[in-house]
């Protein structure tokens, strides 16, 4: 049975320095599923993710046309429209990068960072949310005794799970992951794969990956990015 659609991309065209990267893309992404995006390097897989949380907008010389809709509380919302602010969008659509990018702070402060941005200060509530997100990211047992140590003291795999947990603390509905295991060894990667499959309950996941075996292990749907457009795998 197919899940309902969560993200709808409509006639999307994106160019960089006036060179088209995508042209007239129409795509649907199912809710509570993992959609994998594969394809050769340099075709714009990461760029495509950044169109879904508007992170591309900080780049000069980039231009986008078309629409991206996401389903929030039963309503289709145009993410480039006025109803949703960029910070709010990014709390609904979390992102995890290729290289783990904890901020230069303690584990606790990294986790509290997204909450601080929303003005949440009540310590008990913050602590509860942090604990819950760390548990969801399979990290709690490994860090519970050193929450106030630097995040840089964690291993690569732990740092990446911290970044996933940090994204989860805002309770996103969509999670974008840009080659989340490519900087990790096989053991750390497999923990993250298990985690992603588990997270389907809570979120809609889009994972960029160029490991075909990984795609076949975790993805419900796979798309291959070819010149300027997507093909089903």
């Amino acid at each position: 049975m197919d899940n309902p659609v969560k993200i709808r991309v409509e006639n999307l065209t994106f160019s960089y320095h006036q060179t088209p990267v995508f042209e007239h893309i129409n795509l649907d992404f199912n809710a509570h599923a993992i959609t994998a995006i594969t394809g050769p390097s340099g075709r714009g897989k990461s760029t495509f993710l950044s169109l879904l949380n508007r992170l591309w907008e900080s780049q000069p010389f980039a231009k986008m046309e078309g629409k991206v809709w996401i389903l929030l509380d039963g309503q289709w919302v145009d993410i480039y429209g006025k109803t949703l602010s960029k910070p709010d969008l990014r709390r609904k659509v979390g992102m995890v990068f290729q290289t783990p990018n904890p901020l230069p702070m303690s584990i606790y402060k990294n986790m509290a960072f997204p909450l601080k941005l929303t003005g949440m200060t009540e310590k008990a509530l913050v602590d509860a949310k942090i604990t819950a997100a760390l548990r969801q990211a399979f990290l709690w047992d490994e860090v519970k005794d050193r929450l106030h140590d630097s995040a840089f003291g964690l291993s690569g795999g732990q740092q990446q799970r911290l970044c996933i947990a940090r994204a989860l603390v805002s309770q996103p509905e969509i999670l974008l992951l840009d080659e989340p295991t490519s900087s990790l060894d096989a053991g750390a990667a497999s923990v993250i794969e298990d985690l992603l499959v588990r997270l389907k309950e809570r979120c809609t996941l889009i994972v960029v990956s160029h490991y075909l075996d990984q795609v076949s292990r975790i993805a419900d749907t796979a798309l291959k990015l070819e010149a300027r457009g997507f093909l089903p795998v």
Binding site: N53, L55, K86, R90, G94, F97, L103, L117, S170
Partner: peptide
């Protein structure tokens, strides 16, 4: 730039990014 990107992706607005990430660094 990774710190800036992290802050952006977590929903920091430009003032928050400045105060919490850029100025301390």
């Amino acid at each position: 730039v990774r710190y800036i990107q992290a802050a952006d992706a977590l929903g920091a607005d430009s003032v928050q990014r400045l105060i919490y990430v850029i100025l301390p660094e």
